[in-house]
Design a protein around this nucleic acid. Sequence first.
DNA 1: CTTCCCAGCGCG
DNA 2: AAAGCGCGCTGGGAAG
Length: 571
Amino acid sequence: MYLLLAAHADGAALQELTAGGAPHPDAATPRVISAAELPGVVRQLEKRRPRWIWHRTQDWYPSLLAAGVELERCYDLTLCGAILAHSEFTAHTSYARNAEKLTLDDELQQPPQALLPPPPPADQDALFDDPGFRRAPRHTPEELREEFAAQQAALGDAGAAIPADNRQQRLQLLLAAESAGAMIAAEMQRTGVPWREELHEQILFDYLGPRPPQGHRPAKLEALNGALRQLLHSPALNPDSPQELMRALHRNGIEVKSTRQWELKESTHPAIEPLLEYKKLSRLHAANGWTWLDAWVKDGRFQPEYVVGGVVSGRWASRGGGALQIPRQIRGAVHADPGHKLIVADASQLEPRVLVALAQDSKMAEAARDKDLYAGIAAQGFGGDRAKAKVALLGAIYGATTGESGRLMPQLARTYPRAVGFVEQAAREGEAGRTVTTRLGRSSPPPSEGWLRSQQSATAEEQRRADSLARSRGRFTRNFVVQGSAADWAACWLAELRRRLRAMRTDGLPAGELVFFLHDEVMVHCPQDAVADCIVAIEGAANAAKELLFGRIPVEFPVSVAVVDSYDKAK
DNA sequence: CTTCCCAGCGCG
DNA sequence: AAAGCGCGCTGGGAAG
């Protein structure tokens, strides 16, 4: 059952559609529902387990959640439209050809915000107090219905070219997973990561000293700054200025081309150690210090905004608070509530395993049967040297050309011609200006106009520049197929896990809540007596994701699970 | 004063 | 050990 929810001047318009996107015979015209009665109506209709169709999940779902209405599944027209408009699986359809003049405005990205406190938790009326909501709806119900019908038609044609390839099922799975991801993002933002402010403050005190007045350096940084000024004979030095710092280093005979950590480490000058310490602490203070704590943690929860579809590869991005960059230093502040545990689960070595499955490299699959894939590869082709094997494989996925990683490539290619050939092929597609596609059908963006123009350059100098741009794009497409297919896997893992956790709740069992997701890692906050069942759900979902993407293949996707009180104890 | 870009570094 | 992919955020600094 498909139910379209569209904005309406008086609240919402609701219409039942067929799977193809036509109005259901019993619902020729949409039903208008006032804002006040919407949550109740939606709650009632949810009992029939519909798929809710809407322009953007983030416009509807947060307010429904705030009103206490949780839904099972949806279809996000914006996210799905973006996939269908660019996917190679639908490139031959009129939907893709008309993508330039999409009926929907694709404002996936909102203007970037400065560091602002997170919005207060929405209450039941928030949706309807929002002046944006009271504006004339951007799309009529009929426009949204037609958009859904067009997307369904494109999906229906996805398998036409190569039916045996299951392209239609794969793309359908991707659309469902992406829409589920949008719901999970809204739910996780509402729930938030359990964050103990007093533990965070203790960490800051230990590293930096007491909280300084606004705009001042903490004591430890001030002391390091004093030492640096002496050691570098620069009494007014501000080490936060790369230019000043560079000049001071040069004055003291430290000939670096940048002030990056790894380059500074080359020097043995006595100022280097305090300088690196200063940089580390200064970063903590600026990015995750007291100001961050004030702005982002409230009532024991960190509630970041996730941006589903924010990365071309299908990974999520985030907005505000740097949610996907929580440094190890402060992970001790992420702490389970009393009587609860954090389950931190991580798909080990996900990208190499995805490469094995994509390339169907049976030799590498033998190595991937081991819990430690790098050790398996080391045994097969690198004389047992695990570090070498890891650098070589990651280099193949990233497109390393120089350094140890680049030198190891021929050795890797000899042992695993299929796996290496797969990423090499993806690189060649990109260099030639073509697009590449993930397992489930998300395609890389086409090259820009400027890139295409650069490839027709005349002079030798221009040609060198063009070749460099081509190789750069090749590294991007090389990585895209692996990173993007790993994101496909992770989206299915997450959606499957949500389904299983919801089932536990429906069965009246104690169940955990998803509170964090980071590319190949999930965190579940969970009552102690639900831990065992949650782990079963996490592992079952991982296996389900593998079979959804690749069928029954002899490649393991092991999940490493840690049950901890605080995040720093995981890994 | 605001706006934009860069260098640097955090995460995977 | 080295600098190959994808992001967001900060402070500095130049430009308007």
